[in-house]
Design a binder for these strands. Structure first.
Length: 553
RNA sequence: GCGCCCGUAGCUCAAUGGAUAGAGCACUUGGCUUCGAACCAAGGGGUUGGGAGUUCGAAUCUCUCCGGGCGUACCA
């Protein structure tokens, strides 16, 4: 149990003890809130519980707070509890409790911060869902990084997570992809053919056509566009997978839209909706009565042409999710899905399933600045900055960090010029430098002939410098951050936490030297232990963000 | 028009309804003969878009007005 839950439990016991003793009237106790005080001088933790209880208890908040404190059970980890106006209870932990985090981090390693929020619960996280019609561009990677980061946090919190990529490998776009590829192929073999306005114009199409030409010469000219579409789709999805792997995103499941047609799932969903009376025909199209669920107009499920709209397979896909038995489904959707996400849930509801197991996390647009100008990106027009290109230049870490460094509700401006500049302005290096500095200590220690396990039995109570204690307080906070991320589906908290952890680390590094001659041996060993834990913790936190922990930079 | 998101320091952004609204960048000043200065220490900078309401307490919740982004397809 993380420390703030322990403290909440202790306060709750105190309230109950006070009630039993008649010092407080009896009332139902609301959830005890434990927070981090803004001002460090107030203590390590604070609770406004007495303020919230004032009404029910019909007493002054200060008096309630004091009564709670008077009935606090004894613990070995609380050093001091004070009451402050208007009614806060401030708690300071013992140095021993803080020092214990050093041992805990080392003992638990990559499991440090583990929670039991998700014990026995299955979660599916859907993200990215780029169409296999072109390289993944930088504007499309935000959801993927957010989803993968949340997946890592949820696994640590005890959930069984399936990270899933939904592939739109059917429909009109694939038809267009096939036609585009065939036209480029025909051009290569010297036949007259021109791209239409809706066709894909990127150079990668020509590259794919050339592969076919080099393998088969002109023998494919009689093949239908579907043949070309199928080939192009496979090539593109393979390279998309590889691109995502470069930024440490590996999906557990690739779910093909096409499979929803092959299994008849799409039509089954349509029939079920029809049986339940949610579908009507008008102007030759099949309409879904979304207005019955609060939409301002009905939506088309099957076009006049007999082709389903994207909405239909999306509903079938979520129907399938409902039946796969997930306790929770988290969908990361970009700005282009803001309007349609609710319609999909209406479909799930109409099919007779609850919708509260689906949590939709919308994120805002990411715009690209180059030389101070915004670049408009379109896969179809072939105008985009590919994720691969950016990874080539800056590597995966700054991309990973940048994509989660803001709340999803905030639009991101990705300044290419700034990203390319490897400057000290970049918070990524500030965080990684903490790990590098730790690594340096152990490298020097080994070079000087120090025993690798010299710090094994170190006396951690010697770690009393204020900057060391401040770092330990921050280290103690990781489980709370994981909980916050998981409960709110907000990956960005880890990015801010990592920065704050580094900001707590660097002063300790400046103040608390290890290898200097004037550091007595017991203290040196304790500090080696401290930096060993710090190194481990930075590696862990960086890994939670899908980033590397370099030994040197 | 309707829906969603946003408006916080010069800029980019934080802040589970709690205490004196915080960071980074930029700006000013100081610190490397000792484990990596991609660092540290210090400073200035705010009517949280305006107004009203709920609350012991509002950047946060409600209403309203102003301003901005995105969406509002028989494209996905």
């Amino acid at each position: 149990m993380s420390i703030h839950h322990q403290l909440a439990a202790v306060l709750q016991q105190a309230v109950q003890a006070a009630q039993a003793a008649g010092a407080l009237p009896s009332f139902a106790l609301p959830e005890v809130v434990i927070e981090r005080p803004r001002e460090a001088s107030f203590g390590d933790y604070a609770s406004p519980t007495a303020l919230k209880l004032a009404r029910d208890a019909r007493m002054a908040p200060l008096k309630i707070a004091q009564t709670i404190v008077d009935h606090l059970p004894a613990t070995d980890y609380i050093a001091e509890v004070t009451v402050a106006p208007p009614g806060f209870i401030n708690i300071r932990l013992t140095a021993a409790r803080l020092q214990q985090v050093v041992a805990n981090v080392l003992a638990e390693g990559a499991g440090y911060g583990r929670l039991h929020l998700g014990d026995g619960k299955k979660v599916q996280i859907e993200c990215v869902s780029a169409n296999p019609t072109g390289p993944i561009h930088i504007g499309r990677t935000r959801g993927g990084v957010m989803g993968d980061t949340l997946a890592r946090a949820m696994r640590l919190a005890g959930y069984e997570v399936v990270l899933e990529y939904y592939y739109n490998d059917a429909g009109r776009q694939i038809t267009l992809l096939g036609e585009s590829t065939k036209i480029r192929y025909l051009q290569l073999i010297g036949q007259a053919a021109e791209l239409g306005p809706d066709h894909y114009k990127g150079d990668y199409i020509t590259d794919i056509a050339r592969q076919l030409y080099e393998a088969h010469g002109a023998a494919l000219q009689g093949e239908p566009a579907e043949y070309f579409g199928s080939y192009a789709k496979d090539q593109i999805s393979r390279s998309q997978k590889e691109t995502l792997r470069r930024i440490n995103i590996v999906f557990d499941v690739y779910y093909n839209e096409q499979s929803l047609y092959e299994t008849g799932r799409v039509w089954e969903a349509l029939e079920t909706l029809q049986e339940k009376g949610y579908v009507y025909e008008q102007d030759g199209a099949q309409w879904f009565k979304t207005t019955e669920f609060g939409d301002d107009k009905d939506r088309v499920l099957v076009k006049q042409s007999g082709e389903p709209t994207y909405r239909m397979p999306d509903i079938a896909y979520h129907w399938d999710k409902a039946q796969r038995g997930f306790d929770l489904v988290v969908d990361f959707f970009g700005p282009d899905h803001h309007a349609t996400a609710p319609q999909v849930l209406m479909g799930v509801q109409a099919l007779g399933y609850p919708t509260d197991f689906v949590r939709t996390v919308l994120h805002q647009i990411i715009s690209i600045l180059k030389d101070g100008q915004e670049m408009k990106m379109s896969t179809r027009a072939g105008t985009f900055v590919s994720l691969d290109d950016v990874v080539d230049v800056v590597g995966p870490d700054p991309i990973r960090y940048f994509m989660i460094s803001r709340s999803g509700n905030s639009p991101i401006e990705f300044d290419l010029n700034l990203a390319l500049e490897k400057s000290d302005k970049n918070p990524v290096y500030y965080i990684q430098n903490a790990h590098v500095r730790c690594a340096g200590i152990f490298r020097k220690w080994a070079e000087a002939g120090g025993a690798p396990d010299a710090d094994a039995g170190a006396d951690l109570s010697l770690l009393t410098h204020e900057s060391e204690l401040a770092f330990m307080r921050k280290a103690l906070e990781l489980p709370e951050v994981i909980e916050l991320m998981v409960l709110n589906s907000e990956p960005h908290h880890i990015a801010f936490y990592a920065y704050e952890l580094a900001a707590a680390f660097h002063p300790a590094y400046e103040n608390c030297r290890v290898l200097n001659d004037d550091v007595p041996e017991p203290l040196r060993h304790a500090r080696l232990r401290f930096y060993r834990a710090a190194k481990q913790l930075f590696a862990h936190v960086l890994d939670l963000m899908g980033m590397s922990a370099p030994e040197v930079m």
